[in-house]
Design a binder for these strands. Structure first.
Length: 138
DNA sequence: TTTCTAACA
DNA sequence: TGTTAGAA
């Protein structure tokens, strides 16, 4: 039998209400309200405002926040995420580079991390020697 | 009760 | 990012 690929096209658009408020979005994503407001400041989210001044998020923002978290966890800063987001393809939670140039850019981010790891490893080695009371050979 | 902005013992 | 004060 052919591979079973279940494509849940949850086209669940907004419920009739005015939108998701920050408290609920925070609960549903596990991200603090503080962080959600920060993402907005960085241009990563742009909820509309209710006459009360309260932020009204769209249902899709739940997934948007998850994407942001994945990217942050990958070491990208908010500025980088802002420019990279439009090239990201989200297949039900699976994020993949949508543009070829993005893949290259991310590979360089990885190299940058490798360098950092190398420097930390060297620093740790120096610390080990210091702890062991190793004496220089001169 | 919830959210908002602004600011930091 | 957390936390918090003061207001709506």
């Amino acid at each position: 039998m052919p591979a079973k690929l279940n494509l849940h096209v949850h086209v669940k658009v907004n419920s009739g209400s005015g939108g998701v408020r920050i408290g609920e979005l925070a609960r549903r994503t596990g991200v603090s309200e503080r962080a959600l407001r920060y993402y907005e400041e960085q241009g990563l989210l742009s909820p509309r405002r209710l006459p009360s001044g309260y932020r009204a998020y769209r249902e899709g923002d739940v997934a948007a926040v998850r994407r942001i978290r994945v990217l942050l966890a990958a070491g990208l800063n908010t500025a980088r995420i802002l420019e990279v987001l439009p090239c990201i393809v989200d297949d039900d939670g699976l994020l993949t580079p949508g543009c070829p140039e993005l893949t290259e850019g991310l590979a360089r981010e990885r190299d940058r991390i490798d360098e950092a790891i190398g420097e930390l490893a060297a620093t740790r080695a120096n610390l080990d020697r210091l702890i062991a009371g190793e004496r220089r050979a001169d």
